[in-house]
Design a protein around this nucleic acid. Structure first.
Lengths: 264, 264
DNA sequence: CGGGCAATTGAAATACATCAAGGCGTGTGG
DNA sequence: CCACACGCCTTGATGTATTTCAATTGCCCG
C-alpha cells in the first residue's frame, strides 16, 4: 500500500464510530466539518443512499474502512488493481489520466459524497489516477460486498444507474468543452459547475466558497497551460466577474460569468 | 417521426424475417452484406449477446423493429424523447452533441452492433444527436421491454456492465485526446481505433477498409476544422502512412501510424 | 536565510483557425 | 448532351488563440 498515512478502521470498536460518523448520530461528530459535509450532501446520490440503507440494515453492511491522507497524495495509482472502491467523505480529489510524457487530463474533481468512478464499482479501475488535492478522508468499500449490497437493494441499483447516467452526461460535456470551446468558456464553465456542485453540498455562502484548486489543476481539467489559465483568470477578475484569493472563490457577477461560459 | 423512409417491421410475418435476419439462419440473408456484418460481429458485445438470447427464448423477446434510412438522415433528434433504443445493424452513424451556434462534437462513431449509448437503455437520451453517415439499417428495441429482458437474464446484465465500462474507457480516452493531444495524434488515433473496431467486425482486408467518413466527420470527432484535417491527412499520406481514396482507407505503415499517434 | 512551489507578466513561437480561390466529381434541369 | 450548381477536397495567405520561454514576485517551510 502506498498511503503510509492511511488509517484503516476495521476493528469492531471502530465500526461503531464509523457507523456514527456515517449516520451523523454523534453530536460531537455532527459539529465537525467532516460530517457537516457528509450530512449536507444528504440528497446527493449513490453514497448517501447507500449510507441510509446501511443505517437501516446494519447487519448486512458491506465492509468499509475510513482513511485520511494529506493533500497531494495519491489515493489510487493508475495501474493499481484494488479490491476496494473509495468514496470521498471530506476534502477535494481529482480523477485523471496521465500520458507517459507527462501530459495529463483531469476527468473530474471529486467532492464529498462522490465515488471515484461508478464504473469502478464493477471492476478495478483501469488507468485512472485518483489524487487528493486537500487533505482527504475517504471511505473504502470492499468492492465485492458493496456490489452485493447494491444488488440486494434494487432501489440502490436504480440510484446507481441514475448516477451513472449523470456521470455520462458530465463526460459528454467535458468532451464538447475540450473539443469545441474557447479557453475562457471552458474555465468559466468549470467554475460554474463546481459552484453548483458545492452549493448542493451546502458549501457556498454569499456566492463564496473555499477553493483549494491550484491553477495547474484548472489547466489540467480544461486542457490548457497554467500560464494561460492565469491570464484568463486575470481577465475574468478584471471584468469583475469573479474574485479569487486566499483559497477562496467568489462569483461577483453570476449572469456575466454565465455569459462568458456561453450558456445560451 | 422525421424519418419518412423508415420501415417499421412489426407485423407477425415480418417478425419471422427479422428473427432470421438476427440469427443469420436464412441462406440468402447470410450472403448479403447486411447480415455478414452482423454475423461477423458475433463475439462483439451486448447486441450479439441479446440476439443470441432472443434466439434461445423467442417467446420472451422484446419488441423490436427494423428501419432503413439513407445517409445523412437523423436517427434520433437531440431533444427527442423516444421510447425505443436503436442498435446499428448496417452502415455507419454518429453520436454527437451540438452547440446552439453550430459547433458540434462527435462523441463516437457507431458501427454495426453498437447501441447508440448504453445509458440510453435506462432513460431517454438527453441532448445527443444520432445521425446516419451512410445508408443505415438499425434495430429499434422498445426500451421498457429490452430493459426487462436484460434484467431477466443476469448474464446479459453482466455484458451490459462490461459494455458500459468499455464505453466509459472510450470517452475517457476521447477527453485526453481532445484536451492534450496534437491534431496529428488525434487523427492518427482515430484512424487506428476505427480500424481496430472494423477489424473485429471482419471488415478489414489487407489493412484496407471501406471508409465512408467525410473530412468534416473527422473534424467534428477530433475538435478540428475540416481544412486542418485535410492538411494533416495530406501530411500522413505524404509520409506514406496511409492512403485514402474512393471512400477507401488503407494503412500502409501501421508502425509508423502508431508512432504518429504516440502509442508509447 | 535559502529553496521550492505558485502566480503573474511580457515577448516570441507555434498550432490551428479563418479566409479565399480553384479543382474535381456528381447530380440536375434545360 | 451541355451548363450549371453544389458538395467535397486541396492549397496558400493571413489571422489569432494558445503555448513556450523567461524573468519576477510572493509565500510557505524548514
Amino acid at each position: 500500500m502506498s498511503d503510509v498515512l492511511s488509517q484503516p478502521v476495521d476493528g469492531p470498536a471502530e465500526q461503531q464510530r464509523l457507523h456514527a460518523l456515517l449516520t451523523c448520530e454523534t453530536p460531537d461528530l455532527r459539529a465537525s466539518p467532516t460530517t457537516t459535509a457528509i450530512c449536507e450532501s444528504h440528497e446527493l446520490g449513490l453514497y448517501s443512499a447507500v449510507r441510509e440503507k446501511v443505517e437501516r440494515h446494519p447487519a448486512t453492511s458491506p465492509v468499509m474502512s475510513l482513511h485520511t491522507i494529506p493533500g497531494r497524495r495519491t489515493i489510487r495509482h493508475a495501474t493499481e488493481w484494488s479490491e476496494s472502491v473509495p468514496v470521498i467523505c471530506r476534502g477535494w480529489a481529482t480523477s485523471s489520466i496521465a500520458l507517459p510524457d507527462g501530459r495529463r487530463q483531469i476527468l473530474s474533481f471529486l467532492l464529498p459524497g462522490d465515488f471515484a468512478c461508478t464504473a469502478s464499482l464493477f471492476e478495478p479501475i483501469s488507468g485512472r489516477l485518483i489524487e487528493a488535492i486537500t487533505e482527504v478522508t475517504y471511505c473504502s468499500f470492499k468492492r465485492s460486498e458493496l456490489k452485493a449490497f447494491l444488488f440486494a437493494h434494487s432501489d440502490l441499483l436504480e440510484t446507481l444507474t441514475r448516477t451513472w447516467i449523470e456521470e455520462r452526461r458530465q463526460t459528454d460535456q467535458l468532451a464538447i468543452d475540450l473539443g469545441r470551446r474557447t479557453a475562457a468558456e471552458r474555465i468559466a464553465r468549470l467554475l460554474l459547475s463546481l459552484m453548483e456542485r458545492l452549493a448542493k453540498r451546502g458549501l457556498v455562502q454569499d456566492n463564496t466558497t473555499e477553493f483549494p484548486l491550484r491553477q495547474h489543476h484548472i489547466a489540467d481539467a480544461t486542457g490548457l497551460t497554467p500560464v494561460h489559465v492565469s491570464k484568463v483568470l486575470s481577465d475574468l477578475r478584471r471584468r469583475g466577474l469573479i474574485e479569487i484569493s486566499e483559497r477562496t472563490l467568489t462569483i461577483l457577477d453570476l449572469a456575466g460569468l454565465r455569459c462568458a461560459a456561453i450558456l445560451r
